[in-house]
Design a protein around this nucleic acid. Sequence first.
DNA 1: ACCCAGGGTAACT
DNA 2: AGTTACCATGGG
Length: 272
Amino acid sequence: MFVKSAEKCFRLVPAGGINLDITLDCGQAFRWNKNGDGSWTGVVRGVRATVRNDGGALLISSDGECEEIFYDYFDCSRDYGDVMRRLGNDGHLSRAVSEYGAVRILRQEPWEALCSFIISSCNNIPRIKGIIDRFCVGFGENAGSSYSFPSAEKTASLTLEDLSVLRAGYRAEYILDAAGKVAGGEINLSAMYGMSIPDCERELMKIKGVGKKVADCTLLFGLGHTEAFPVDRHIKRICEKYYPDGLPECVKGIEGIAQQYMFQMQRTGGAL
DNA sequence: ACCCAGGGTAACT
DNA sequence: AGTTACCATGGG
């Protein structure tokens, strides 16, 4: 098979800019790797792409005509100037915003986000990436130079023994349970675009290994529900310390974006 | 060798 | 309702 689709290059301008390094390496997506020249290579909806900063814009080279895919993926229509202005009304968040700029929430595919954050439980980011990489190489579809994220249908056809190559530990059975319920129609991820957060959470938590935190990550990173607010051990600590009486009014509707700034601060040892 | 990791579950008080 | 052991694995 020597047919290789033509490499296409195009430019996108995300409203309000983008901090590419942090956006692709802040623990929301796990299939991006940085190249020696500062660009990033990853796979989005089965399409491999290399992305670099070009001022406030993105320069993307990918296989085939798929500008729409990346325009959507980087949530280019959302004005992060607005977002950052709003978050800036809070003293702690304003420091994070001025330090990091536009940390965008990516619009990943719902199934990929669900599966990735099932794997994330009690795990560290480098190992999460390793498990996901073995999952894609082992069971994704080969499109020349890259592998797609395995579909729920494909995953549902696998066994625990098949998944042993992932070395995912106790999470393997959770992956199979999620795949069965999604592929079988018991859980309809697409329907969740138009559902409330509590209703979505209730549905997702029917899956073994999915609690509130993993459900909220799925909603935020996979379905674009920016009002979802995943609370992991770090965010919990930050909330207890800085927001004992609840989140500030200025984050209403974009709690998930605020959460990402908090997480990044905590991760890099910065003080809010 | 040791500690910890973007949790969840079940079995306890 | 709140605590605790346990889950499997390996990165740092």
